[in-house]
Amino acid sequence: MMVLRTENVTVVRGGATLLDRVSMEVSAGRLLAVVGPNGAGKSTLLRVLANELTPCSGSVHFDGFPLKDHEPRSLARRRAVLRQRFSVSGDFRVGEVVRLGRTPYPSGGHAREDHAIADRLLAEVGLPGFTGRSYATLSGGEQQRVHLARALAQLEGPVTPKLLLLDEPSSSLDPRQQHEVLSLVSKRVRAGYAAVAVLHDLSLAARYADDVVVLCRGNVAAKAPMASLDEATIRAVFRVEVTKTAGRDGATQWLVEGPSEDRDASERPHAGAP
């Protein structure tokens, strides 16, 4: 079932075209990876999907209706966003931060049930017993997982479809935690959630994503099942030498070996500077 669909989304900011007629869709039970070089428009796309940014033209539909037409609280029970940067002002406890995810529900996060949900999700993201800890004293990776737990808490309810939007969910995590977080997300996806994740690590995307959208300078360079993404596309978009191989367990690995020779000189920052 189609959960989220964009059609010809264009975003122009300060004269620059950040997204140019981007069309994509994600269904229930699918994890869509959004990959692309820096400045390709990945985060911009995620902000459009999150209803934070209104496209200049084109449309975004969630659950069959334009995103704008959804009642905010009802939307918030079906769609959660984990952003790239996060901060919490004030000395909140970890449990309180997670329970903020329950804000759209009638209990507002204060009910006993909400405490139980928060404790369970903290254990699931690998932070069991962290409820009473001060959020500010956690490491960056721990904070990121607290926010993942908060986003998951937001979707703990009966209404469907569910959509998770993740902007580089593993950016502050060590390799093992990256896998743990993505397999947690992937478990939700198997349970019927739709998910869109901006990812930098192609091997990580290959292991967990079902589909991929490759963005390049605001355009969709490729849109395919993750398994059929080929070396030529990645080489052209990222301008790196890359090999697609199989790892020990048979999962696809992307080996990036270095910048490719066809680098466009005019694109190089500070071209000609000493």
Binding site: R47, A50, N51, E52, P72, R73, S74, L75, A76, R77, R79, A80, V81, R83, F86, S87, V88, S89, G90, F92, E96, V97, L100, G101, T103, P104, G108, G109, Q154
Partner: peptide
Amino acid sequence: ARSLDALALGEAEASDLGIA
């Protein structure tokens, strides 16, 4: 109070949570 708690996460995050 509850809306201000959500706002402690940031403006975008608060509106993700359904807060106007």
